[in-house]
Computed example of a mutant assay.
Amino acid sequence: MAEKPSDLWRRQLTEEAAGLAAGTLTPEHAFATQLFPDSLVVATDETLDSFEAGIRALSTPSDDEILAEVERVVLALNAVNEAHDGVGYETGERELLCEYIDATLTENGVDVTALAERNGMDRYEITDEWREW
């Protein structure tokens, strides 16, 4: 199963808290709590859970159905990002989110390369039409 970026962020938050508690990390070098507030992590996690469920619910999906799910998750992630003043997802987070979408599709039997080609795009462009983050 593809690892959700929100799971990675939770680990980083836990490691940061442990470092602060142990004194091996100073507050001025702690960045995870600023980058990944709980509201961002929870909203991202819920959005990705919904995407997983939506993809799994498709029995023999058409390209249109798959791309509708991709659009839905991207628009929902846009809303999460906007709720965090447009800075919730920086470059690293964007890449992780796109990789997660790709991996989730692949794990559910979608040939992402073929899907993209049939729809006149590159594999790594399937979120571009809707993505604002």
Results as ranks from 00 to 15, higher is better:
Glu3Gln: 12
Lys4Gly: 10
Lys4Ile: 06
Pro5Gln: 01
Ser6Met: 08
Asp7Pro: 06
Gln12Leu: 15
Gln12Ser: 09
Leu13Arg: 13
Glu16Gln: 07
Ala22Phe: 01
Thr24Lys: 11
Thr26Arg: 15
Ala32Ile: 05
Ala32Trp: 03
Pro37Phe: 01
Pro37His: 03
Ser39Phe: 04
Ala43Pro: 08
Glu46Gln: 07
Glu46Ala: 14
Leu48Gln: 02
Asp49His: 04
Asp49Phe: 06
Asp49Met: 05
Asp49Asn: 09
Ser50Cys: 03
Arg56Asp: 03
Ala57Gln: 12
Leu58Met: 03
Leu58Arg: 00
Leu58Pro: 00
Thr60Trp: 11
Ser62Asn: 01
Glu65Ala: 15
Leu67Lys: 07
Glu69Tyr: 07
Glu69Asp: 13
Glu71His: 07
Arg72Gln: 13
Arg72Tyr: 12
Val73Gln: 02
Val73Trp: 04
Val74Asp: 11
Val74Met: 07
Ala76Pro: 10
Ala79Lys: 06
Ala83Asn: 03
Asp85Arg: 05
Gly86Asp: 09
Gly86Arg: 01
Gly86Phe: 08
Gly88Ser: 02
Thr91Arg: 02
Leu96Ser: 00
Glu99Ile: 02
Glu99Asp: 04
Ile101Arg: 01
Ile101Asp: 02
Ile101Ser: 00
Asp102Trp: 04
Ala103Ser: 11
Thr104Pro: 03
Thr106His: 10
Thr106Cys: 07
Gly109Phe: 13
Val112Leu: 04
Thr113Tyr: 12
Thr113Lys: 14
Glu117Val: 12
Tyr124Lys: 09
Tyr124Arg: 09
Glu125His: 08
Glu125Gln: 12
Glu125Pro: 09
Ile126His: 02
Thr127Asn: 08
Thr127Lys: 02
Asp128Ser: 15
Trp130Arg: 02
Glu132Leu: 15
Trp133Met: 11
